[in-house]
Write a protein that binds this DNA or RNA. Structure first.
Length: 186
DNA sequence: TATCCGATGCCCT
DNA sequence: GGGCATCGGATAC
């Protein structure tokens, strides 16, 4: 059962603290980004195409696309043709399988490309429903402290503070501006 | 700590 | 043919 709802901007912070498992491997979501339909940085901005078809289908399915030719990125399709990019997890279950897939124990899920590698998410899951295997969800226990800041790696709408993170987590892909330094960048 | 750069595939104009 | 919602290694300081 999927414990969430809403459009991309509501869903992105709502997912922080929720546990995601894929085929029994995963952890606690600590970093997300929201991409809305009318957002120049969103793949859905210019309308439906073969690549972004999942974003124009039912909400709460996967949108998986290839990034820079070699990485996969995993999104949750939200209501109103938006999506939430899952950027980092606090690894919790299946650490050895993640390390084997990653080629080492470091930075298992700190970044969208590393996360899909650790969880074995590929384009084969593009459009897949999230309320059945291999996906499994566990609701968070209360509302965590959440920080927000600009999104990473985009060239349009760079100022919108639609990146969300679990405050103080050492598993973020990068630290948030204005927070204390010391988090691993890579 | 910050910046640069190459690898690499494919979508979209 | 241009442009990426990235990563990891190298370089300079």
């Amino acid at each position: 059962m999927i414990p969430f709802e809403g459009d991309a901007l509501a869903l992105a912070p709502r997912l922080i603290g929720v546990t995601l498992l894929v085929d029994g491997v995963g952890g606690i979501i600590v970093e997300t980004e929201a991409y809305r339909r009318d957002d120049p940085a969103s793949h859905s901005f210019s309308g439906p195409t073969p690549r972004n078809a999942a974003m124009f289908g039912p909400a709460f399915r996967a949108y998986v696309y290839r990034s820079y030719g070699l990485h996969w990125c995993f999104n949750i399709v939200a209501e109103r043709h938006g999506a939430v990019l899952i950027r980092a997890l606090a690894p919790l279950v299946g650490l050895e399988r993640m390390a084997a897939r990653r080629g080492g124990p470091a930075f298992l899920c700190a970044g969208p490309g590393r996360l899909t590698q650790a969880l074995a998410i590929t384009g084969a899951l593009d459009g897949a429903p999230l309320d059945r295997p291999p996906f499994e969800w566990r609701e968070r226990d209360g509302v965590p402290d959440i920080v927000a800041g600009p999104r990473i790696g985009i060239t349009k709408a760079v100022e919108a503070p639609w990146r969300f993170g679990l405050c103080g987590s050492p598993f973020l892909s990068r630290r948030f501006p204005g927070t204390s330094p010391g988090y691993p960048r890579r």
